[in-house]
Design a protein around this nucleic acid. Structure first.
Lengths: 232, 232
DNA sequence: TTCCGAAGTTGACATTTATCAATTGTGTGG
DNA sequence: CCACACAATTGATAAATGTCAACTTCGGAA
């Protein structure tokens, strides 16, 4: 592990409040690996051996069933993933693979559980993190069940716009086929949805999005804090 | 509160391991209410004032957006609901209403957070509960994104069958319109899906389900532990 | 028991979404 | 710079799902 990795990990909400001793105990058993793109880090169904921390690059969490595959989430540095499986000592529910060349720190699940037993601050941080993750997925479910794919796309664009500091021109940050899978639609359908948003003041050229009429877009997408706001 | 309520609450996983003192602190501020059917207990967007414990009856968690409504989960006694909002001191993401006449214990969120700060065993139980809830919703999302409505129905029936002790004849436990909403489809579509399952060895008459050909049903529904098993 | 209203079903139809096939665009390695 | 592989788009069509309206069934209240 690089010396520079450790303070970066320490800064994460999950680890920032725990005792030095517990943190040291966690880091002691950790190891780091650099992965090329498109490498499977985790396979759903496997026992959760490690809590993963993505230090650089990017990864995706996806799920399979009956020959179909869907993108569940994209992970960007620096953040952890698959905490719940580690805590419950259960099988992974999602698979993970790198998108780009990525650097990952692996913390053995047993060490994580030990630290959690011994360090109340860490337990508290885990509670906060899990509650947030849970609420994110609930929002996701609402998004899927209450909205059409066009509405999901429109809201995704508004969220990206806000994420980009409310810029009216911003980047899609994801290949379109990935975005389609994330939004629960086919690439073809996404292509058509993008065209269908033109009358609502949206221009997408390659990976560049330009919003020319926020009023109309908002009238269509009706963003709601209880679905689209990641913070609450 | 009835005397008999307290040991019932104490027996829940969430509360069984905490200290007597912490539990007493929680119960001290609690109060109980009996509600008639179809009464709103919680409205999404409101600040999370209470952790709810359903003692008897039944309730549903649902979500609204843009005039549409969807059933997210059904709550049966004895269990708690809306823990994550309480913990994060955030707004409720779902609304809740009674289905039948129900008895509910209300624990003030501040008391829950205080107990969580002071009692490591309680914190540990919360972590376990939240991790399980999170994993349930992830399975839900996979169910929604990877399966058609017919497949969701087929798998729902198999889960109910297992829940009923693997009986080949069992009860639907829910009005069909509720089931339709839960599965993310219209009542009309559910009606047709039920007929479409007949060739696969399923007979549904009123609220009674009879599975006459488990092979065929399983061949269609392809149940997976990573979606359908609530325990993992 | 009868009646009423809501739930459930059915048919016709509209909309949404997926599938398949062909074509165009695009970024990367030689 | 070119060529290749793959992403993205487009058109045609099919399948899945929703909507609306009519009708039937069922359960509870008078």
């Amino acid at each position: 592990m690089r010396d520079s990795d450790i303070p970066e990990i320490r800064k994460l909400d999950l680890f920032s409040e725990m005792s030095d001793a517990s943190f040291a105990g966690l880091i002691r058993g950790a190891y780091v690996q650099d992965f090329p793109p498109q490498i499977d880090l985790v396979t759903e169904g496997d026992p959760a051996g490690f809590l993963h921390v993505l230090m650089s690059g990017s990864a995706e969490l996806y799920a399979d069933w009956n020959g179909r595959e869907t993108l569940m989430a994209t992970v960007r540095p620096v953040s952890t993933f698959i905490l719940a499986a580690t805590i419950r000592d259960g099988p992974y529910l999602m698979s993970a693979r790198t998108i780009e060349k990525s650097r990952v720190v692996l913390l053995p699940s047993t060490d994580v559980r030990t630290a959690f037993e011994q360090d109340h601050e860490f337990a508290r941080a885990i509670v906060g993190e899990l509650a947030m993750c849970y609420r994110s997925v609930v929002k996701d479910t609402k998004n899927l069940k209450l909205r059409t794919s066009l509405e999901r796309l429109a809201n995704y664009l508004i969220r990206s716009h806000l994420h980009a500091g409310a810029a009216l021109e911003f980047d899609l940050l994801m290949e379109k086929r990935r975005l389609a899978s994330f939004l629960g639609m086919t690439p073809e359908n996404l292509s058509r949805a993008i065209k269908a948003l033109r009358p609502y003041g949206v221009r997408i050229d390659g990976a560049t999005v330009r919003i020319t009429n926020m009023e109309d877009l908002k009238a269509l997408s009706k963003p709601s804090a209880l679905i689209d706001d990641y913070a609450t």
